[in-house]
Amino acid sequence: MSVLEAWYMDESTEDPRQCHKLNPNQPVSLQELRDIGVCYWKLKADIYENDPELQKIREENGYSYMDIIDIHPDKLPNYEEKLKTFYEEHLHLDDEIRYILDGRAYFDVRDKNDRWIRILMTKGDMITLPAGIYHRFTMDETNYTKAMRLFVGEPVWKAYNRPADHFDIRQQYVDSLKCS
């Protein structure tokens, strides 16, 4: 099984579906992602419906709600408009949990110094972005992913575009970075 790939992004404003690696590339390790609160698992997406490892993660973390979304021009109404919305830098008041069941996509997160880190998500990758972290989402050039969205309790879809530093959860997140 492959391991998650992440790197610092270049400053290009070209098509966000391109990889945007620096030259030379500056990879980001799983430990560096953990240091900013991003958790990662590699699971067996082909058996997600009966995967005991996924069930264990859901039970341990209280992920009681789940749905699946197909992100593709033929499957998601207003695809291009939705992608623009997903790519706006934002935060949530709750953790964001995503599990890629098929296809590929990118999550971009800010590090402690406000630099963008791009995380390539492929089949079997599951991440948790902590509440209060600035991030965004986009597809890669394949324009397809099938993702499971997980929540603790009822789903909360509200995104707060940057600047959103006035939220208590943002300050709690920033304070947590000082401790690590």
Rank of each mutant, 00 (worst) to 15 (best):
V28D: 04
V28G: 02
S29T: 10
L30K: 11
L30S: 10
Q31V: 05
Q31Y: 05
E32R: 13
E32T: 09
E32Q: 13
L33V: 03
R34M: 08
R34P: 00
D35N: 08
D35H: 06
D35P: 00
G37M: 05
G37D: 01
G37K: 03
V38D: 00
V38S: 00
C39W: 08
K42M: 12
L43R: 02
L43S: 01
L43Q: 03
K44S: 09
K44H: 14
A45I: 07
A45F: 08
D46A: 14
D46N: 15
I47A: 14
Y48R: 12
Y48E: 10
E49P: 00
E49Y: 15
D51K: 03
D51C: 11
D51A: 01
Q55D: 12
R58V: 07
R58F: 06
E60C: 10
E60P: 04
E60L: 10
S64E: 12
Y65N: 10
M66G: 09
D67S: 08
D67N: 15
D70T: 14
H72K: 11
H72D: 07
H72S: 13
P73V: 07
K75C: 12
K75S: 13
K75I: 04
P77M: 02
N78D: 10
N78R: 11
N78P: 04
E80D: 11
E80F: 06
E81H: 07
K82R: 08
L83P: 00
L83S: 05
L83A: 11
K84A: 11
K84Q: 11
T85I: 13
Y87M: 10
E89A: 05
H90F: 09
L91M: 15
L91V: 12
H92T: 05
H92R: 02
D95K: 02
D95V: 09
D95H: 05
I97Y: 01
I97F: 02
R98L: 05
Y99E: 03
I100F: 04
I100T: 14
